[in-house]
Design a protein around this nucleic acid. Structure first.
Length: 332
DNA sequence: AAAGTCTGCAACCGCTTTCTT
DNA sequence: CAAGAAAGCGGTTGCAGACTT
């Protein structure tokens, strides 16, 4: 069947609306209400097609539209809903009173999407972009070298062995390995350990798991600065023994930690999200820096805000000496 | 200061879904 | 039930203003 565009007719105006046109449209709708868009332009004295009038009304002139910058809460809602619904802008807009689907779509494309990409998060899947992972530091490790892997083949996780065969291979294979490694550790090694999060668990895997399972409903977000910029990238395996990074697979949290913490409690500002019911930063900040900090669902904080719109949340914790042993990769 | 480039967003396009006759 | 119109929807475009060179 197909329909020709409603604005194809000669004489109908296109492009930005003038104040006079807006006024005519609003006055008409105030008198007659919205709807019947086909006849509306003629009756209202507008040289526009009905569709153009409808869009102008629904996206701009409607009295219940909230204008202005999106709040943190709105942005969090958009990200969370998008992770579930994808590009269903109207469905997302239905849960954000006063915001139109067009506005949310624009905001996503111009702000949120870019920020997620910048932070190493795939805006489509809301997962970390493992293609950005740099394996070089891992592979240069004395404990994680090729000979070790091959010598221990009877003990280690089969996925680790796969690494040995993939060392000279391409990035895609490396990604595959890491995905498998993460999944197997998440689902098998850690299943009995959580939610206590003992420090015997390889820290990076431990927190990847935690953030997904326990923190995602309680998003805390603020302007934040990464402590160690050089290490701010999606990374699941500690790059050395006293520093590790973590992030969640759905952009709910990102964090980094260092045994030689470069920040002190007094340096940290934090904001709590009202939606985060169990937020309790004091318990973390009161924990002596020298003692291991156990992570639990009520222990989060964020670094001080910066000019940059790099949003992230951070967990502070310490990694015990030599916590990341090669044995950590062995099935328990 | 001028030209070029980037960014944000309103508006449009065309396809799909829903409604009306 | 079918056909056509209206409305809904998501992707894309174009332009004004901001920013950079």
């Amino acid at each position: 069947m197909g329909r020709s565009p409603c604005c194809d007719k000669n004489g109908l105006k296109k492009g930005p609306w003038t104040q006079e046109e807006d006024q005519k449209l609003m006055e008409y709708i105030q008198l007659h209400g919205p709807g019947n868009w086909r006849t509306l332009p003629k009756n209202a004295g507008l040289q526009r097609c009905g569709k153009s009038c409808r869009l102008r009304w629904t996206n701009y002139l409607r009295p219940d539209i909230k204008r202005g910058r999106f709040s943190f809460e709105e942005e969090e809602t958009i990200i969370q809903l998008h992770s579930v619904m994808g590009n269903k802008w109207s469905a997302i807009a239905a849960r954000l009173p006063g915001r139109t689907d067009n506005e949310i779509k624009n905001y996503w494309n111009t702000h949120i999407r870019k920020r997620l990409i910048r932070n190493g998060i795939d805006p489509v899947t809301h997962s970390p972009r493992l293609d950005l992972l740099d394996l070089s530091s891992i592979l240069n490790s004395a404990q994680l070298n090729l000979s070790n892997l091959l010598n221990l083949q009877t003990l280690v996780n089969p996925d680790v062995l796969r690494l040995a065969t993939l060392l000279a291979s391409n990035q895609e294979n490396q990604d595959l390995f890491l995905n498998n490694q993460m999944n197997s550790i998440n689902q098998q090694t850690l299943s009995q350990e959580l939610p206590n999060c003992t420090t015997s668990i390889p820290t990076s895997f431990q927190n990847t798991r935690i953030s997904n399972q326990f923190f995602s409903p309680n998003l805390v977000k603020t302007n934040a600065q990464i402590i160690d910029e050089s290490n701010y990238m999606p990374q699941c395996i500690p790059d050395n023994h006293d520093h590790a990074m973590l992030y969640s697979q759905n952009d709910q949290f990102k964090a980094s930690a260092s045994e030689n913490s470069s920040f002190q409690s007094s340096d940290i500002e934090y904001k709590s999200n009202p939606a985060h019911q169990n937020f309790n930063v004091d318990s973390v900040l009161s924990t002596p820096m020298s003692s291991p900090t156990q992570i639990n669902s009520s222990s989060t904080f964020v670094n001080s805000s910066t000019e940059d719109e790099t949003y992230c949340s951070m967990f502070k914790f310490e990694i015990p000496e030599s916590s990341f042993e090669f044995d950590d990769l062995i099935y328990s």
